[in-house]
Amino acid sequence: MVRAERKGEELMLTCREVTKLVSESMESRLSWRKRVGMRIHFMMCVSCARYRRQLFTIRNLIHNYLSEEESQTDAGDHLSPESRQRMKRALKDAESNESTEEK
C-alpha cells in the first residue's frame, strides 16, 4: 500500500501549486492526475475555486474590452492634440520629401 499512499500524497496540492495548474489548464489539457488533484482541491478550497473563475473572468473581460473598443470610438484613451499635431507634421514632412525625390 506504499504506492497508494504516495499517490494520495501527490493528489494533495497546495493553493500555490493549484494556481499554477489553473494557468496551465488555460493553455493546454492537463494530465488526468493534475486534473483530479485540482478538482479535489477545489472541493475543499473556496479561494482556489474562485481564483479559477476569476481568471476566466479576466480573460472574458479582456476579450470584450477589445471588441467594445473596436465598436465604440469614444471609449478609452485618446491621442492628445499635441501628439496628433506631431504625427500630422511628421506625415507632411515625409510627404514633401517624397515629392521632391520624385522630381
Partner: peptide, 14 residues
C-alpha cells in the same frame, strides 16, 4: 495620410 491621424489615430493608439 494626414486625415488618417483623425480617422484612425485613437483606434490604433488604443
Amino acid at each position: 495620410p494626414e486625415a488618417w491621424v483623425d480617422r484612425y489615430g485613437d483606434y490604433l493608439y488604443r
